[in-house]
Design a protein around this nucleic acid. Structure first.
Lengths: 149, 149
DNA sequence: AGTGAAAACCATGCAAT
DNA sequence: ATTGCATGGTTTTCACT
């Protein structure tokens, strides 16, 4: 799909506030409400907009501990069993196959260091994992949505 | 604020789809539309729900390269000038002060390895940064929203 | 692709409990 | 804190451009 500057402007505005009306949205980018609606419909249909969602404050829900964990392995971990095992751990927010010393990088968010420890235990139990290296976040400067280039 | 199971159920449903009506939302958790609306209003007022937003597919917008970069420094980087400098680089999606060998961990998303290189150059120009260590993501298993515990 | 308007639907406020 | 209802606004569709 071809995405032009108007689409990008719509995406930026919806990223900031997805509750605004199509009338407001259209006015901001110089379009009628109907036209704005049609563009957003297409962006959703083609998958550029994955979904409309809420951004939750993890700290308000009691998840104040953030860490990144590097997983070393004795086998190739790029297959579905690994994905399933990692996805089954609710405190694992991201999982990536990486180039470099380790095999997999996961982002973990928990409510306490004890819960982090429990997650590390779960990670050690994933097939192929031989060791982990944990990077504990002391303070987050920011976590923001992907830039709309 | 006290968050109960009904609130959590509402949060999970809104994370999946923030476009549904309060009638549907209320029915799903055993509440009237008005009551569901009132609960969501409070969750927004107290900051548990930060905002309603769209989730964009970075790949569809031409950002297919993901990397994590560790920054070493010769000074304390936990202050505002560092935050501002990192925030000013649009390809930097997250920045965290970390415990361990390096000082700062940043998440970078670009459209090409050339653009990644340009971001690394920008990171080297940030005050205090002495060296960087880049972890390139080969494949993302998943990136999902924080779990509502 | 965009416009303008019509119809169905929903958010929002309020009185009552 | 929840309900049911009224109303003003919004989404959604459609004929026309």
């Amino acid at each position: 799909m071809a995405i032009d500057d108007v689409d990008r402007a719509l995406l930026v505005r919806l990223q900031n506030d997805a509750t605004q009306s199509y009338a407001a949205l259209g006015q901001a980018v110089g379009l009628s409400a109907g036209a704005a609606h049609e563009r957003v419909r297409k962006l959703k249909a083609t998958g550029v907009i994955r979904r409309t969602t809420i951004e939750v404050d993890p700290a308000a829900l009691g998840s104040g501990v953030l860490a990144y964990v590097l997983l070393d392995s004795d086998a190739w971990m790029g297959d579905e069993p690994t994905l399933d095992a990692l996805q089954a751990i609710p405190t694992v927010e991201e999982a990536h196959i990486i180039a470099g010393p380790a095999s997999v990088l996961v982002k973990v968010r928990t409510g306490s260091t004890e819960a982090l420890q429990a997650t590390l235990r779960s990670l050690h139990l994933v097939d192929g994992v031989t060791s982990t290296q944990t990077i504990v976040v002391l303070e987050s400067f920011f976590e923001r949505a992907p830039a709309v280039v």
